[in-house]
């Protein structure tokens, strides 16, 4: 069980009644969620439930229509002025994003850059870190995830699991306040999943605030401080992992877990 997060103090991530529609489809329906500093929240749910969209709202890759998103007290994407929503400037949005780390399901790394350059490019060009320090930081991160010897390789020569680990290192190199994970193991061969989850676990142990969209129920149950179950654009149930998985309160979660267990048992 990871360290208990700070229950008091300003939350790291706050989603207040966030809504979003694609045309007539309501993808997110008045979703509210708070993530405390150092907390690891796992979001589970069927495909189409809006969990990926919710994640992408946090760093404004998805431009939500209603509600507010705050990271470390600052509104993301929009700011309120006299009750009116005003879109933030590109510069502000980019600055906010540079403090939020995100890892995607696939095609994370820039294929034309070496592993080292993948990790150092943004710190140097976006945050103005000196090349020497950026490289030192990168090598430290690579060492930590056990891939230092791959520093000068191109991504195409790495396995899927190695690429995802490098993607995590790249996001960490920006020294983010919160890390977002969008089904980062879903596209991996089963035997490569473990190495990625191990890195995520060590991040959680170190107290990083994490929001993880995942299908890895076992991992979520063991590592997360809190589980959030989403369906059809809304949070249906949330709470302590042990309790949620063993005694789901809502019928929908029960059905979801049943389907999951059945497919898991069969495979």
């Amino acid at each position: 069980m990871p360290t208990e997060p700070a229950a008091h103090g300003r939350p790291m991530v706050e989603l207040r009644r966030v809504s979003m529609s694609f045309g007539r489809l309501r993808v997110l329906n008045d979703v509210s969620l708070t993530v405390s500093r150092g907390e690891m929240v796992a979001i589970i749910g069927p495909s189409g439930s809006g969990k990926t969209t919710l994640l992408r709202c946090i760093n404004f890759l998805a431009e939500y229509d209603g509600g507010e998103v705050l990271v470390d007290g600052e509104t993301v994407g929009f700011r309120l002025e006299n009750g009116r929503r005003i879109r933030r400037t590109e510069r502000e949005i980019a600055a906010t994003r540079s403090n939020i780390g995100i890892v995607f399901q696939s095609y994370n790394l820039f294929p034309h850059m070496t592993v080292l350059r993948n990790i150092t490019a943004a710190p140097i060009r976006v945050k103005g870190v000196s090349p020497e320090e950026a490289e030192a930081r990168a090598r430290a991160l690579l060492s930590r995830i056990g891939l230092l010897e791959k520093a000068d390789e191109l991504p195409v020569n790495l396995s899927g699991g190695q690429q995802q680990r490098v993607a995590i290192a790249r996001a960490l190199a920006m020294q983010p306040k919160v890390m977002l994970f969008d089904e980062v193991t879903s596209a991996l061969d089963p035997e490569l999943v473990g190495e990625v989850l191990a890195v995520m676990k060590s991040l959680a142990d170190d107290g990083m605030t994490m929001v993880v969209v995942t299908h890895e129920m076992q991992f979520a149950r063991e590592i997360a401080n809190r589980i959030v179950f989403m369906d059809e654009g809304a949070i249906v149930e949330e709470g302590d992992p042990k309790r949620l998985f063993s005694a789901p309160a809502t019928e929908r979660l029960r059905a979801f877990l049943k389907r999951y267990r059945e497919s898991y048992l069969l495979s």
Binding site: E90, R91, A94, R97, S98, Y107, F110, P111, A121, V126
Partner: peptide, 26 residues
Amino acid sequence: PRAQWDAARSLGMRRRLLFQIVIYPQ
């Protein structure tokens, strides 16, 4: 892949930098 754009923007890159070091080379 769209993730290339997403990844670059998520790292805080703005349009000019994004195009210069991620998009154009590829």
